[in-house]
């Protein structure tokens, strides 16, 4: 007997109905969000905070403590950096061509310089946790996002590793983690700051050049810092509304 169109449609209809019933009755096709053994997280209201950082160039001695601390706290793979330190050397009036070095991200400090004539300083860098982040805007799957408390984070389980965000970030703050094949970046130690600790880099900075800032907390010393000092963000012309504020930042810094 030849199969009629009626038979085919009837069979297909049964398959669709049974299939949809099976999917809807299965407990949950979505991955279980957390293992049952996970400890309860301390209470935290993301709407009550707005995180950023202040960096005082005058206080940075280029010791690399922040880079090493970040590497240990966040298991950053060798050769990649969530934060790094750059050494700037500017000869005379040639502001357009600064000599920038960052051996090993400045992880083990910098070789001593004896050139007293050039203008020299260190610039620690990290994700600027922009309010209008180019990286968030280009992510096609919602894997990179602005948290309600102003931290740009990555959902590892959603990241496809497409690298759009790496190209979009004007500050070069992102890399692909070779082990996970997903993008990685500074999380502003989100696992620490949401339980009352400071970031690993701020904890390890011996001169307090770096300070975690909660811009929504009226008692945070950041407000006095921003009021009393001349501060600047990196690449203001990119209109990213960055939240890492530098004191005494030279115009030659890119």
């Amino acid at each position: 007997m030849a199969t009629s169109r009626r038979d085919v449609l009837w069979e297909a209809g049964k398959f669709l109905i049974l299939g949809s019933a099976a999917v809807s009755s299965s407990p949950s096709a979505a991955p279980a969000p957390t293992p049952a053994a996970a400890p309860a997280l301390p209470a935290y209201n993301p709407q009550a905070h707005l995180w950023g950082m202040t960096i005082d160039i005058e206080k940075c001695i280029g010791c690399g403590n922040c880079v090493r601390a970040c590497e240990k706290e966040n298991d950053v793979p060798e050769g990649f950096f969530r934060t790094w330190v750059e050494h700037y050397e500017i000869d005379g009036a040639d502001q357009e061509h600064p000599h920038v070095t960052s051996p090993g991200g400045g992880k083990n400090g910098f070789p001593p310089s004896s050139d007293a004539k050039a203008k020299q300083f260190f610039v620690p860098k990290l994700c600027n946790h922009c309010m209008d982040s180019p990286c968030v805007q280009v992510c096609p799957v919602g894997a990179t996002f602005d948290s309600p408390d102003g931290v740009v984070l990555v959902d590892e389980s959603y990241c496809l590793g497409c690298r759009y965000c790496i190209q979009a970030c004007p500050y070069g703050c992102r890399y692909i983690n070779p082990a996970k094949e997903t993008v990685d970046k500074c999380s502003l130690c989100y696992h620490r700051i949401t339980q009352g600790l400071t970031t690993a880099c701020c904890e390890a900075c011996p001169t307090q050049a770096r300070q975690l800032a909660d811009l929504k907390n009226p008692k945070d010393p950041v407000h006095e810092f921003l009021r009393k000092n001349k501060v600047q963000v990196l690449k203001p012309h990119m209109a990213t509304r960055a939240k890492v504020f530098y004191r005494e930042l030279d115009g030659a810094v890119r």
Partner: peptide, 24 residues
């Protein structure tokens, strides 16, 4: 997904669960 924006809000708790190495 979509609780705070175009992302999985549960990712915030996943990230918060990462182990702390520096005690403070």
């Amino acid at each position: 997904f979509g609780q705070y924006g175009h992302y999985r809000a549960g990712a915030l708790d996943d990230i918060r669960r990462k182990p702390v190495h520096f005690a403070g």
